[in-house]
């Protein structure tokens, strides 16, 4: 059975992440603080203008968008760049390369366990709290299905970007710098810091042609739109699928090419 070996990696991941209970508690506190800051910040920002709607977004829309973007970030961020970088520096990567499983897949599936726990412990509670606090401003209907599909695609795109960036570590032996650059670019250009709807014109168009908006903006736009037209759904998911395939292929090729170049310190 082919899937079984992957699912056992998932299981290990779940058990592993359950070991760090205190870490989960602190992370929840940190998230809570962040939500409080975002809430008050945008409340006072919206209080400074006369209109309720700015760039097609109300205060509630913006709040849901940003809060869920953070929840998605916590759920998707798996520090793959760190893991790869550390393994490259310590030489442990040699052991992983010898495993009878493709490294790219191995890494993904060994993180899948934390996806599952993060989903239930951070994303779902945040989602429920937001729906209750905003008195059902999140439309619950067919858009949830689109959202789910879109999130899965987003996870894959995010992982591919991480993997490509991690491969760069093979050459530079710099982890912190590469990782922080990636994180900053992704968070800003994906709309996780400020919703893309607020971006000024030329920048907005440029951002739509980049893969990053497919990570946070695409799923959240689909979620917030109560009755999306078929056209919107198809173009959004289609763009995501294109990026997903493109980035995966690029990552695979780059990795294959780089593997021939590396020198690893004796592990």
């Amino acid at each position: 059975m082919k899937l079984k070996k992957y699912l056992s990696l998932t299981r290990i991941g779940i058990i592993e992440s359950r070991q760090f209970r205190l870490a989960t508690v602190i992370m929840v506190i940190g998230n809570l603080l962040y939500l409080i800051v975002v809430y008050f910040l945008w409340k006072s920002i919206y209080a400074s203008v006369e209109t309720d709607v700015v760039n097609g977004m109300t205060f509630t829309d913006t709040l849901i968008y940003l809060v869920l973007a953070t929840a998605l970030f916590n759920f998707m961020e798996m520090y793959a760049v760190w893991e790869m970088g550390r393994n490259i520096q310590s030489g442990k990567i040699v052991l992983d390369l010898l495993k009878p499983i493709e490294y790219r897949r191995y890494l993904f599936w060994s993180y899948s366990g934390s996806f599952v726990t993060q989903f239930f412990f951070t994303f779902l509670p945040t989602f429920i709290v937001v729906s209750v606090v905003t008195h059902g401003a999140v439309p619950l209907g067919i858009n949830l299905l689109y959202f789910a599909v879109s999130v899965i695609l987003a996870v894959l795109i995010n992982y591919s970007i991480d993997f490509i960036v991690g491969t760069i570590c093979l050459y530079t032996e710099s982890i912190w710098g590469i990782n922080i650059m990636k994180q900053v670019i992704v968070l800003l250009l994906s709309g996780a810091t400020v919703p893309i709807a607020f971006f000024p014109e030329p920048l907005k168009t440029v951002v739509y042609y980049l893969p990053f908006q497919s990570i946070y903006n695409a799923p959240l736009t689909l979620l917030l739109d109560g009755s999306p037209t078929l056209e919107t759904v198809v173009t959004t998911l289609g763009t995501q699928l294109l990026w997903c395939v493109g980035m995966t292929l690029l990552g695979k090729l780059f990795w294959k090419f780089s593997l021939r170049q590396i020198t690893v310190n004796g592990g």
């Binding site: 590469i178 922080i180 650059m181």
Partner: peptide
């Protein structure tokens, strides 16, 4: 580790 130093500084400025 000069490359690391340069990349980290750029990352910080980013």
């Amino acid at each position: 580790y000069r490359a690391d130093f340069i990349i980290s500084t750029i990352g910080m400025i980013f």
